[in-house]
Amino acid sequence: MAAGRPARRVGASGLTHAGDLLFGHLVVPALLPLVRLPGRLAPGASRAWARPLDTATRPFDVIGYWGSPS
């Protein structure tokens, strides 16, 4: 970088990052029962629970790819 030139900021601002942390702090406790439930089920029921989750992985990967900044 040339002398005297301001650095280019890349990425989210501090406020955006704080919002992400707050959102995660509110959402994760609500989703924890969905994660703990299969651990209490019988093995066959646990596999049946995992099947739709595995099926839903691909659309989430595509959406994540589309939403990525680069």
Rank of each mutant, 00 (worst) to 15 (best):
M1D: 08
A2C: 01
A2L: 09
A2N: 07
A2I: 00
A3Q: 14
A3H: 08
G4F: 02
R5A: 14
R5D: 11
P6N: 03
P6Y: 04
A7K: 02
A7R: 05
A7E: 15
A7F: 01
R8K: 10
R8W: 08
R9G: 08
V10A: 07
V10T: 14
G11I: 04
G11R: 04
A12R: 12
G14H: 03
L15P: 02
L15S: 14
T16F: 03
T16W: 03
T16P: 00
T16V: 14
T16G: 11
H17T: 15
H17R: 12
D20I: 06
D20H: 11
D20T: 13
L21P: 00
L21I: 06
L21E: 04
L21S: 02
L22K: 01
L22E: 01
F23L: 15
F23C: 13
F23K: 10
G24D: 07
G24T: 06
H25L: 13
L26R: 09
V27D: 01
V27K: 00
V28R: 07
P29T: 12
P29L: 09
A30G: 10
A30F: 05
L31G: 06
L32N: 01
P33E: 04
P33T: 10
P33G: 03
P33N: 08
L34W: 10
L34I: 03
L34P: 01
V35N: 01
R36P: 02
L37A: 14
P38E: 06
P38V: 09
G39H: 06
G39T: 05
G39P: 02
G39N: 03
R40W: 03
L41P: 09
L41M: 12
L41W: 06
A42I: 04
P43W: 11
P43L: 08
P43Y: 05
G44P: 04
G44V: 05
A45W: 07
S46H: 02
R47Q: 13
W49Q: 07
W49C: 11
W49K: 00
A50Q: 14
A50R: 14
R51Q: 11
P52A: 04
P52W: 08
L53K: 07
L53C: 13
D54W: 10
D54T: 10
T55R: 15
T55M: 11
T55N: 00
A56I: 09
A56H: 06
A56G: 12
A56S: 10
A56E: 04
T57Q: 12
R58Q: 01
R58K: 03
P59N: 05
F60Y: 11
D61S: 06
D61R: 10
D61A: 10
V62L: 12
I63T: 14
I63E: 08
I63C: 09
G64N: 13
G64T: 05
Y65E: 11
W66L: 15
W66E: 11
W66M: 09
G67H: 05
S68E: 05
P69H: 02
S70H: 03
S70M: 09
